[in-house]
């Protein structure tokens, strides 16, 4: 196997890793959106997570994975939460912005187990709370 093939393998594996993270994120946000928007009538059921939230959260995952300095990572995560908190009141598609940023932060730190626990607990909380109207 020559250097070019090794680069192709690395490219394929890197793309697979990023796509795995993106699918994990999209899957959880889809689950949360369904839990938050559930309704008794089909017309009341939303259950869609938009591209905007998925891409913004994934952006945070990418930034966190590329950073190594702990203080910088903490500041980026805090800033993202603040911005998501503000935008979630103004943009309907970003109403799950705060938990989405927390999830992205955990995935970005490589804490997959914590992210899975957050995903499950978040679903439970959204299911038990009053649907948003």
């Amino acid at each position: 196997m020559d250097a070019g093939d090794e680069e192709l393998v690395s490219l394929f594996q890197g793309a697979t890793e990023w796509l795995t993270l993106l699918i994990l994120l999209a899957l959880t946000l889809q689950l949360w959106a369904w839990a938050a928007d559930r309704g008794l009538r089909p017309a009341d059921r939303g259950g869609r997570s938009g591209w905007l939230l998925v891409l913004l959260s994934f952006g945070l995952v990418v930034v966190m994975r590329l950073l190594h300095a702990e203080w910088t990572m903490a500041l980026v995560l805090c800033g993202s939460l603040l911005v998501a908190g503000l935008l979630s009141r103004m943009v309907h598609d970003l109403r799950l912005g705060v938990p989405a940023m927390l999830l992205a932060g955990l995935l970005g730190l490589g804490h997959v187990l914590s992210a899975i626990v957050l995903a499950l607990l978040g679903t439970l909380v959204l299911l038990l709370s009053r649907p948003s109207r």
Binding site: L8, F12, A15, L22, A26, Q30, S49, G50
Partner: peptide, 29 residues
């Protein structure tokens, strides 16, 4: 009225991308 997200949903698109990537990998390796 409820605001609905229009266009393709992210999850099916991403799963499609994953299938494409795997197909490209199978073709290459």
């Amino acid at each position: 009225s409820r605001q609905r997200t229009s266009g393709a949903r992210p999850l099916p698109v991403l799963l499609g991308l994953a299938a494409l990537l795997l197909g490209a990998g199978m073709f290459l390796f």
